[in-house]
Amino acid sequence: MNRYEKLAAIAVALMLVAAAAIFVYAPTDYLQGPVQRIFYLHVSAAIAAYGCFSVVLVGGLIYLRNESLVADRFARAGAATGVVFTTVTLVMGMLWAKPIWGTYWTWDARLTSTLVLWMVYAGYLLVRRLADPGRQAARIGAVVGVFGFVDVPIVHFSVTWWRTVHPGPVIVNDALPPQMLATFLFTMACTLVLAAVVLYARYRIETLEDVGMQVAEPFKVIPAAEPEPAR
């Protein structure tokens, strides 16, 4: 087992323990029934995604300052990991919304801004794939990452100014019974570990890709020598 396999095994084991906590230890919600158990992973994945996108933001800003390749690789890894966790958040949220709100989707502030978040960073990944690797691509990525991070709270704010049905933060105002809170905090910690492991592995992949590019770069086609003209 190499380092990455060990880390992955630890993360998976932690997630299994979290699953046990969610399904066995945590009490069933009185009003919503078992479907409320989606909450633990739904919110944890959202927080993990925000963490990943903060890595994109910080990596981008560092890159713009000193062109650090490490910062750029972390930004790329953060975007890829963040998009995965945002997808998890959106899909689980829709599954939860159907029985409780009666619809998979509603144009609420938090849903809209999460969808925009997903689209911004999916666009980031696409632009990184299509731009020729190098300084230009890294700068483009940094700018997209910074603008995306600024845009999402604004989308959230501008839609809130209309109306919102999404429940507010229940954790901070003490609305969770202690067992639920403990399960949530544990699940969140495990999810953050999982996200960090995925990001770290992705960082390794980005590094290897960079190295591969540099190996491939100096290769040039040398034109065949012209035959000597007959005298």
């Binding site: 689209m119 666009g123 299509l130 845009d151 501008s158 209309w162």
Partner: peptide, 15 residues
Amino acid sequence: LLPLLTLPLWIPFIV
């Protein structure tokens, strides 16, 4: 790419 990158950022203006 231009629509993919620009449209999400234009949403506040559309709202």
